[in-house]
């Protein structure tokens, strides 16, 4: 493939977080003024229906107004999403011993990639999440006792309290 763009896809529960909230987080997570390196590496919102399209345009207008500068982030319809190779998935998790425990729970590759537990583990291991939800989640991720200890130590070793800019 020479015409693809690297993206990530999130399945979310709209009763917990809205698409607008995710858009807000997206805008906070990149520099919308920077020119894209290439088609492969560019900031982009790929909408899947007209509601998402309208909300994406609305959020872009707000950012443009707030920054008072042109915004290079593109908004386009999603045509097709291809899963990246396995080594790209839950990248941080894969370099830890916790991965073995997740592989036992999910011998099937598709299930492992789409698991909430693996996504959340990867997030915590990367320093994202809230300290108050971590203390609950740590027992819900299917880890052994030693796995839970490894996770808690890894999170503590990050040196900064868990924070996530998600709307509360």
């Amino acid at each position: 493939m020479g015409d693809h763009t690297e993206t990530f896809q999130i399945d979310f529960d709209p009763t917990i977080i809205s698409y607008m909230d995710l858009l807000q987080l997206f805008w906070q997570s990149h520099n919308p003024k920077r020119k894209a390196w290439s088609r492969q590496y560019r900031a982009i919102i790929l909408y899947q229906n007209e509601i998402q399209h309208e909300q994406a345009l609305q959020s872009k207008t707000q950012v443009k107004t707030a920054l008072n500068t042109p915004v290079t982030t593109d908004i386009l319809p999603l045509v097709k999403f291809y899963l990246a190779e396995g080594y790209h998935q839950k990248y941080r998790l894969q370099s830890t011993p916790l991965m073995e425990e997740m592989r036992i729970a999910y011998p099937n590759n598709q299930e492992w990639i789409h698991s909430t537990a693996t996504a959340r583990l990867n997030g915590y291991l990367s320093g994202y999440g809230l300290a108050e939800t971590f203390s609950v989640d740590v027992t819900q991720l299917g880890l052994s006792g030693s796995g839970e200890s490894i996770l808690a130590k890894s999170v503590a070793m990050l040196g900064t309290p868990l924070t996530c800019p998600l709307p509360r």
Binding site: I44, Y106, A117
Partner: peptide, 30 residues
């Protein structure tokens, strides 16, 4: 009655309840 074997694994508790309605969002960060 059919006879089959199946490997049983236990899903993490957090994955045992799936919301009825999920939506999908797709982004690229450059």
């Amino acid at each position: 009655m059919s006879l089959h074997t199946q490997t049983q694994t236990t899903k993490p508790p957090i994955d045992q309840t799936v919301p009825l309605h999920l939506e999908t969002a797709t982004f690229g960060l450059g």
